[in-house]
Write a protein that binds this DNA or RNA. Structure first.
Lengths: 325, 325
DNA sequence: TACGGATTTGATAACGTTAACTGATAATTC
DNA sequence: GAATTATCAGTTAACGTTATCAAATCCGTA
């Protein structure tokens, strides 16, 4: 139909016809059926985004950024939460595959690629791993300097004179946590100190129990490094319950900054990740890959791995600026 | 094809053929093309969700809940942020309409229904307004007791002996804000006090400027009621910058609770909204409407308006429990 | 044995779009 | 003025699924 030409623009339509068609479109309230377009064109103008949890402000910010970029390309984003479950993640990928998404951004629940992801790869759907790495498939990668950021933070604590710096968190199997632990170990080793990690803390209760135990030991820790947002909050809750004073009784640096960190009882020193930039870069990379997979010719190599820097935000909880607390 | 029968179950297929078909499906890595299904069946197995901002934990929680409910129905959720812009919202609704969503959940940017929404209504796509009301279209409604929650909070401040209770926030044109102001006025009037509202505070700077001015007046306010999350945080930042003590210099209650509220300098008293329940109820209502629009017979009236209660969470910033701060 | 019904499989068409082609004119070039 | 090219409108077919219909097979019973 000539209508298609009018809607999609481009080729030879006389101004008169164009006007008539547009009038008809308005009169009838016509909306192109995306399903039919998709059926014809093989791929939907949608991309998928899998994150562990939308309630986590870090991922929410990423999602926002991804959506904005997708919007500028006329694409919609199918956002889905894996709830940190490998099975849920797998099912959701399958549902997205059925909807013939044009590309997938994923914060993988585990390092090894899911079977469904390999199916997507075979179907030549561009893949970008966001925040975490993904092995076993050919995927783009956008991550932050986890190890470096952690190392800088722990070095800072050591520079304040702390000798027993304990590192706590959850799930060392997750790529980001693993990397941060690496950074922690590097900093400790460099200073000739004994690393000490607890990475099985799922709840506020277990976190508090651990801290109570540690703080009752004779040579008790004087500084704490928390490996992720959730653990940081659990630690803060425990610290309040135990009526400890930050940083006098215990210095604290958390990995991942958040909006309210400056407003806490003691403002929190934290390693800030560029969440917005992360989402944006990943989305851009994905659309680059999508474009390339369409145009056959252009095979100039593109950057498939981006590592963004972190920033140590000094506030009071590490021992700096304690006057302004 | 017989394949369709196997995939969708139901009618007459011999066990032998079924086995053969399933084997072939596995062997070939076949996934039903949702686009074609949709083209045939008129509506996609997707619902839409429009929220103002995913970075706001309240909406993020709602989104999470909606997605879970959708998942149990085998539907995916097209989440989109309007960024509080009426125009963006309108475009996004159009894109969703093109994708032939089965239903739409929306936190409307303004009370009057958008033209696109009326188009959806004409296309008989079920609509549910979430958190805010929507006029001019036939839509379900799930909201919280905004007026009642605000009234309870302000009454509480008055009971603490405060006489000049100032109410600040942004955008009285938004339904929720409007309702909360109503509750504030009711409580003030009941106590024979003069209401005093400032609802043009978009940034942390303007908020601080206002507070500085007010606190320099001779009969300065002793209590503050903030109308939304963002303003609450701006107020907290201002309070810190001005080195005021909560609740001694200024008592504060905020509408909308958040995870870190108990961990603030002075733990924040807040009106908690049941975000999870809100999202869940709205999604359930939508799927109810979708089901009904398919089955022609069942026309038993269903509840199209749900109002959920709020809860005043007493912490230290209102003047209660100040010892535990 | 023949007949009605239950069970199973296959064929056909249609959903709305667009790529590729067919014509038909109008405009331009030599 | 003839040949070429640019511009415009319309036709046909195909994307993958499923509703509907048609055909084939099997079973039990009169």
């Amino acid at each position: 139909m000539t209508v298609s030409r009018v809607v999609n623009g481009g080729s030879y339509v006389s101004p008169a016809t164009e006007k008539r068609v547009k009038a008809a479109i308005r009169r009838l309230g016509y909306t192109p059926n995306e399903a039919a377009r998709m059926l014809k064109g093989q791929r939907a103008r949608m991309i998928g985004l899998v994150v562990p949890d939308l309630a986590d402000s870090f991922f929410a910010t990423c999602a926002n950024a991804v959506q904005q970029v997708a919007g500028t390309h006329g694409y919609m984003t199918l956002i889905v939460t894996s709830e940190r479950s490998v099975e849920t993640e797998s099912n959701e990928i399958a549902m997205m595959a059925a909807r013939r998404i044009a590309g997938l951004l994923i914060v993988p629940s585990r390092v090894g690629a899911d079977k469904r992801l390999r199916e997507l790869e075979q179907a030549e759907i561009p893949l970008v791993a966001l925040d975490r790495t993904l092995d076993g498939v050919d995927a783009g990668q956008v991550i932050v300097e986890n190890a470096g950021g952690a190392e800088e933070a722990v070095r800072h604590l050591i520079a304040h004179g702390h000798r027993r710096v304990v590192c706590i968190g959850y799930d060392a199997k997750v790529y980001t946590i693993h990397q941060r632990i690496l950074g922690y170990r590097r900093a400790m080793k460099e200073a000739g100190l004994q690393p000490e990690m607890w990475t099985n803390l799922t709840t506020a209760e277990t976190t508090e129990a651990l801290l109570r135990r540690l703080m009752n030991e004779p040579d008790r820790p004087t500084a704490l490094f928390t490996l992720n947002n959730v653990t940081t909050i659990h630690a803060l809750q425990a610290v309040r319950a135990m009526q400890l004073r930050l940083p006098a009784d215990l210095a604290l640096i958390g990995f991942d900054d958040f909006e309210l960190a400056p407003l806490l009882d003691t403002p929190l020193t934290a390693v800030r990740q560029p969440a917005l930039e992360l989402g944006r870069s990943a989305a851009r990379m994905l659309f680059d890959m999508i474009r390339r997979s369409r145009e056959v010719g252009t095979d100039a190599k593109m950057e498939r791995r981006i590592v963004l820097p972190t920033e140590l935000i000094l506030r009071a909880s590490c021992g700096c600026n304690s006057h302004s607390s």
